[in-house]
């Protein structure tokens, strides 16, 4: 059989040539230390060229994530993104960084990274602490949150903290207590708007049905989860269940002019409640949109 000369094939080698060249250049930069790191340890080169491509596979292929109202994300200026936390392993935080980065790049054309605030045990563990810093995270504390906001960054925070990630499966989509509302005072002091975000889908990836306390204490972990697949299936149990994810960005809540009231517990609690309520309503709406976690 003789066909026409393979014209369309020629486009493909060029793409692969580019990929190989880009990969080699990345490798050379890493080996020569030829990249920039900010004072929090954020490494945009590594995040954009290594972490995000991997996370995007999970985001699109595995969880089939859909982002709603991404236009509510501010294209410039400081903002505090507040979301619900769940899933036994904090994959929701990582997925949110991909969602925010890609939505802003495709929408407002802005290159912004969500700077996550993490619990201190994250920064105590080797490897994990460095991955967290290199991907733009830092310790959830007032000085760091305010420093990032003053620098005009987009800061991501999960006020439920471990109470949210580590809650049993039966409590799914029930927002936990919002701590002391420290995130509100940080926003008030810097005048940064608060952007509520609801994430649906993360609750089902590792349904936590039990906790082996002694093992957790032995390993220095906040809990040792038991899921339908872990630890029974060994490493296979580490694969997250492919639930369908929806992320919705709520309307930003303005905080300008409230800086003097950042120490007033009543103002702080009220605002924290308002944010919590906004997230809870987003979750109810999203759950109606997605009646079953594992649609065919």
């Amino acid at each position: 059989m003789t066909g026409p000369p393979p014209v369309p094939v020629r486009a493909e080698p060029d793409l692969w040539d580019r990929r190989v060249a880009a990969g080699l250049a990345f490798l050379r930069r890493r080996l020569a230390g030829d990249y920039e790191v900010d004072e929090f340890g954020f490494d945009p080169d590594l995040t954009e060229h290594a972490f995000h491509p991997l996370l995007r596979l999970l985001y699109h292929r595995w969880f089939r994530t859909e982002l709603l109202r991404g236009d509510n994300l501010p294209g410039y200026g400081p903002a505090l993104v507040v979301a619900n936390h769940s899933g036994t392993v904090a994959l929701d935080a990582l997925m949110l960084t991909v969602a925010v980065h890609d939505a802003l790049r495709n929408g407002a054309g802005a290159r912004r990274h969500l700077r996550l605030l993490g619990a201190d045990f994250v920064f105590q563990a080797p490897v994990m602490s460095e991955l967290a810093r290199k991907s733009g995270g830092t310790l959830a504390c007032h000085p760091d949150a305010e420093r990032l906001l003053r620098a005009g960054e987009l800061v991501g925070v999960f006020p439920e903290g471990l109470k949210g990630v580590g809650k049993p499966y039966r409590d799914r989509y029930k927002l936990q207590r919002f701590g002391r509302g420290g995130f509100v005072s940080a926003a008030l002091r810097t005048g940064a708007p608060i952007v509520p975000v609801g994430i649906v889908g993360a609750e089902e990836i590792y349904p936590k049905i039990g906790n082996i306390g002694p093992l957790a204490r032995l390993l220095g972990l906040p809990y040792f989860p038991v899921t339908p697949t872990f630890p029974w299936l060994g490493p296979l149990g580490l694969i997250p269940l492919p639930s369908k994810w929806l992320i919705e960005v709520g309307a930003p809540i303005d905080t300008t002019g409230l800086a003097e009231q950042s120490d007033d517990p009543l103002v702080v609690f009220n605002l924290a409640d308002q944010v919590r309520e906004a997230i809870q309503q987003i979750l109810h709406r999203l759950l109606e949109l997605r009646p079953t976690p594992f649609p065919g």
């Binding site: 004072e39 929090f40 340890g41 201190d120 920064f123 105590q124 602490s129 830092t138 310790l139 504390c141 000085p143 760091d144 420093r147």
Partner: peptide
Amino acid sequence: SFRDPAVFTEET
């Protein structure tokens, strides 16, 4: 310490 802020000001 692991609980230190990322950047120290003179007041820390």
